[in-house]
Amino acid sequence: MDKIAVLIPCYNEAQTIQAVIDDFKKELPEGTIYVYDNNSTDDTYAIAKAAGVKVKKESRQGKGNVVRTMFREIDAECYLLVDGDDTYPAKDARNLCREVLENGADMVTGDRLSSTYFSENKRPFHNSGNVIVRNLINYFFKGNIKDILTGYRALSPLFAKSMPVLSKGFEIETEMNIHALDKNFVIKNVEVDYRDRPEGSDSKLNTVSDGLRVIKTIFQLFKDYRPLLFFSALAAFLTVLAVILGIPVFLDYFRTGLVERMPTLITAGFLMLAALLNLSCGFILDTENKKARQNFELQLNVLHQLIKGGNA
C-alpha cells in the first residue's frame, strides 16, 4: 500500500503533463504518481511513460470512468487527486495530504475560489457557474464546501473505497461532494492557489453543456439522497395547481348549484391525486433510503477494519 498516491487523470495533456509530474516529484518525493491516460490523441501517454511514473490506460471515455478505475486498482493511505493541466501548484499538496494522514479528514477540497481563481480564470461563465453550483449543493445538502468543482482533492482510503462512482464524466466532483455530505464523512477545506492553463493548452470543458450536466446531476442526486423532500416539493407544487384550478369551480357551484367547468374539475382532481401519489412515493423511498444508509454504515465498519488490517 502506498503512503500517498498522486492520481492524475489525463486526456490530451501533452503540453503540461511533464511539468505536473516534475512538480509533484519535487514536492511529494514519498508519493507514488499514477497517470491514467483516457484515449489521448497526442503524446500524453509517451511523455508520462518516459517520466518514470506508473502509467495506465482507461479506454472508457470520461473523467468519472478514470476515477472509478483508479479507486478500484490503487491502494494507498492517502489519495491525492489532481488534474494534469498544470493549474494546481504542487506546493499545496502536502497541506491537503496532512489533513487526511494526521487530522482524520476523509475528503479535503482544494479551495481555489478563496484564493486566485477569479483573477486567474479567463472564462467568466465558469466563475459564476462555480458559485451557483456551490450554493445549490451547500443549500440542498446542508454543507459548507468552499469549492465544489475543484479537481484538487485529498481522500482517505475509507472514502475512496466506499465511493460508488456512477457518473462517467466531469460530474464526478459533484458526485463526490454529495456522497461525502450525505454519508457524514469528515470534510475539510484547504485554500490552494490556482493558475490558468498555459497558452496553447485548451480546456476540455464546455461551459454550457457541462454546466447543464452538473446541474442535472445535482437534481438527480437530490432526488436519490433526499427523496422525501424532493417528492414533497413536487406534491406541494401539484397541490397548488389543483387548488388554483379547483377553487373557481367550487365557487361557481356554491353560487349556482351547477358544475359548469367539468373538464377543469377533473383536471384539478387528477392533479390532487398525483400530488398524493408523489407524497406516498416520498415516504416509501425515504424509508428505503434510511435502510440503505444503515446498511452502508455497517459495511463501512467492515471496510474500515479491512483497511486497518491492510495498513498493519
Rank of each mutant, 00 (worst) to 15 (best):
N311M: 15
V108H: 01
N38Q: 12
L306F: 13
L258K: 15
N130M: 10
K183T: 11
G52F: 04
S201T: 15
G110W: 02
D210N: 09
F170P: 01
E297P: 05
D86N: 15
N130I: 08
T69R: 07
N311H: 15
P164S: 09
L136D: 04
T287D: 08
F140K: 10
I4G: 00
P157S: 07
S114G: 09
S201L: 13
F283M: 13
M176K: 08
R293M: 11
P227K: 01
Y36A: 08
E99S: 05
N206V: 06
D210Y: 02
Y139L: 13
D210Q: 09
T69A: 13
V67C: 02
P248G: 05
R94I: 03
P263F: 10
Q15I: 13
V165L: 10
Y139M: 14
L149S: 03
L221W: 06
A48Q: 02
A51G: 05
S114N: 12
F296L: 04
L228S: 06
M176C: 12
T41V: 13
E77P: 03
C281I: 11
R255L: 12
D224E: 14
L155M: 12
V82Q: 07
I187R: 10
E77M: 13
D85R: 04
F185D: 01
I8P: 00
N295L: 12
V165A: 09
G64L: 01
N184Y: 07
Q61C: 07
H304F: 12
N103F: 06
T256N: 08
L205T: 09
K122P: 01
I215A: 05
I284D: 02
F254R: 07
L28G: 04
L251W: 09
E99Q: 15
Y117Q: 03
N121V: 14
E73Q: 14
S40C: 11
S119N: 14
N138S: 06
L245Y: 04
N184K: 11
A90I: 09
L285H: 00
V131F: 12
E173M: 08
I21E: 02
N189R: 07
A19Y: 10
D42T: 08
L181K: 00
D286F: 03
N289Y: 02
C10A: 15
L96E: 00
A51F: 08
